[in-house]
Write a protein that binds this DNA or RNA. Structure first.
Length: 596
RNA sequence: GGUCUUGUAGCUCAACUGGAUAGAGCAGCGGCCUUCUAAGCCGCAGGUUGUGGGUUCGAGCCCCGCCAAGAUCACCA
């Protein structure tokens, strides 16, 4: 049992014995003792002063005396105002440490047959342009939350819904047909997603020119936008697509394949993957059928023009369109179909959608609609809503060319890592392949950590010039502490220094106990991260641990310590720290190199 | 306009969900490589937590009012 809970239970007993009042351990407030005071766990006694009818200090002392007498692991206590600081015995911490040292999977819960199955949807790109910084935040959060769920003993299915159909891809197709001259990724020597994205940009450029010309010719804005030849061409392609025109489908398939090949490269570089991919082109008809069923059952309503609507005014929301007057489906229709298919394919206990907060309203509506269609799981969807990434100039706009391209960003990071590393010159005896692998790990560590350390709910700022650093509260700093431990372990092995842990009679320093306490916290942090859907908790914990270790490392010369027992203890402590850091970082999708 | 989110050091972010003197990093200034990796360590400086009220033993966190920024309310996805 967790020490915190044990102590809360004992406090309950203390209160009953001292003041004859029954309370519950859930009502007992404990916290880690702040560094400036002596102690490990602090009980907040303000809530009991009414029961004791005495001042806070006296109440705390009474409870403290009771606890020291009755509970073996509590050595002594001190009282500051209403805070009762308890000192846990060194032996208890040694016991904890032995456990951490022995358990290879410390902090990890095993998956069993009847573990909950969690499906995590993330990424969900449109197929008309390459991935950018916004997608990176999405992908990293999605991958990380899946890893965190796994660590908490859940079965996880990572999924991606590819928006492969719609006017957006038709725009790229139209521009390619107009001016592509049969260009392919091979002929252009360009990644497929970039090639298709370039045509999308070109479409928009042409379209703007056309609209401007039509406006000059006297049309209204609405007329001009509808009548622009490019837009008419794209719409025509969409209509042909809907009726499975073979030529259009062939082109559509080809261009999508180009894009997927490009995405695969980016996903691989980012280190994210999926267990099951859904395509909108395969799910949207399912959604349409569901909406028609809802219509027949009287859940939805049809307007005179043929469009189908859901009236959510009773839920305090608006009316929402589900099928256009021409019978084609909208975004929401597709999501209904995808959800239905997923629940058919898997026995999902929890569905998590990693989608930006701009779609909060969409998911609120989706949840209600699925419920109305008779799916009781509709209510239990979890929208993992994360904030936008902003640039110093403001929001990213693909059309204005202010996006930060994912591939460029990653390559740029690797260049900086290479340059920094070469200046430090610590890897000189490594082969080029080995070095490149380390640069890649460091670059991605920096990028991933930078993004994941921020509370997912919040809008975050990204300054391409300054944001990503390799010093301070960064991924590389944490990776570096890991590499240092590996170095110590290597040297110990070379010199035949024993790892055997002999704790009897050993007296631990404050720093050492501090590290053990931090390590002990790891499982709780992981559980919190899962409950709160927050990789940031893991990230900040890893930093805290690395920082603590660096101070420790600086203060003690582990291998120079003459006391054999002490040296081995510190060696093991370092190894445990590295183990936990590595586990934490892996949950963020960050690999720690053995050297750097 | 309705709904929702956010506002903490010059900048980027924390603060264990209502607890003790609000903490890190970057940037600035000053120390530390003959010692297990200096991508490090130590110190200095930097704050009326947007603002005004309220709730209580206690508020950055909860409630109300302002101020500011953003998102969203489409036969776009």
């Amino acid at each position: 049992m967790n020490i915190d809970l044990q102590i809360r239970n004992e406090v309950v007993k203390a209160i009953e014995a001292l003041y004859s009042i029954k309370t519950d351990s859930a009502n007992v407030q404990t916290q880690m003792t702040r560094k400036e005071f002596e102690g490990d766990i602090t009980v907040v006694v303000f809530p009991y002063v009414k029961m004791s009818k005495k001042g806070p200090e006296q109440t705390a002392s009474e409870i403290g005396n009771y606890l020291v007498e009755k509970v073996e692991m509590i050595d002594r206590f001190n009282v500051v105002k209403g805070f009762l600081n308890l000192v846990i015995s060194q032996d208890y911490w040694f016991g904890v440490f032995t456990q951490i040292n022995q358990e290879e999977d410390f902090g990890l819960k095993n998956t069993t047959e009847d573990s909950e199955l969690v499906m995590v949807e993330y990424s969900s790109p449109n197929t008309n342009k390459p991935l950018h910084l916004g997608h990176i935040r999405n992908n990293l959060l999605g991958f990380s939350i899946a890893e965190i769920m796994k660590t908490n003993g859940k079965k996880v299915v990572k999924t991606n819904i590819v928006n492969d159909r719609g006017i957006h891809i038709c725009k790229s197709m139209y521009a390619w047909l107009q001016s592509g001259k049969n260009e392919t990724p091979e002929s252009a020597n360009k990644k497929g997603d970039h090639l298709v994205g370039d045509y999308y940009v070109q479409f928009d450029k042409n379209y703007k020119v056309e609209v401007a010309e039509l406006l000059a010719a006297g049309m209204t804005k609405e007329q001009a936008e509808a009548e622009a030849p490019s837009m008419k061409g794209a719409r025509e392609l969409l209509l042909k697509w809907e009726v499975h025109d073979p030529e259009v489908w062939k082109l559509w398939r080809t261009m999508n394949e180009w894009v997927y090949a490009g995405f695969d490269v980016t996903y691989k570089k980012l280190g994210v993957d999926f267990d099951k991919i859904y395509y909108e082109s395969e799910t949207y008809t399912v959604g349409r059928d569901e909406v028609m069923r809802g219509l027949n059952e009287g859940v939805f309503e049809k307007q005179e023009d043929g469009s189908v609507w859901a009236n959510l005014e009773a839920e305090g929301l608006d009316r929402k369109i589900l099928l256009r007057s021409d019978g084609t489906s909208v975004y929401m229709t597709q999501d209904i179909g995808t959800a239905k298919l997923r629940y058919q394919d898997y026995s999902i206990d929890q569905m998590i959608y990693v989608v930006g907060n701009e779609q909060n309203y969409h998911f609120q509506v989706l949840s209600i609609l699925l419920d109305k269609l008779g799916y009781d799981w509709g209510k239990h969807l979890y929208h993992f809503s994360y904030g936008m990434v902003e640039l110093p100039q403001g929001r990213m706009k693909s059309r204005e060319g202010t996006v930060v391209d994912a591939d460029d960003l990653i390559e740029g990071m690797i260049d900086v890592a290479r340059k920094t590393s070469e200046e430090l010159g610590k890897l000189d005896e490594y082969s080029n392949e080995e070095k490149e692998e380390i640069y890649r790990k460091i670059a991605l560590g920096a990028l991933k950590y930078f993004i994941l350390k921020v509370d997912p709910k919040k809008t975050m700022m990204f300054n391409p010039e300054e944001s990503i650093d390799f010093n301070g509260n960064t991924g590389p700093f944490i990776q570096y502490t890991y590499a240092r431990v590996q170095s110590v372990l290597r040297k110990a092995a070379e010199n035949g220094i024993s790892h055997e842990l002999l704790l009897e009679g050993l007296k631990a320093d404050q720093k050492e106990l501090e590290l053990i306490k931090k390590l002990y916290n790891f499982p709780e942090v992981v559980a919190d991260a899962a409950n709160q859907y927050s990789p940031a908790l893991i990230a900040n914990y890893c930093y805290d641990l690395a920082k603590e270790f660096n101070q420790f490392y600086h203060e003690f010369s582990i291998l120079k310590e003459e006391d054999v027992q002490k040296r081995s203890f510190r060696l093991n402590l370092a190894a445990c720290t590295a183990k936990v850091i590595n586990k934490g970082m892996l949950m963020l999708g960050i690999e720690c190199p053995e050297r750097m």
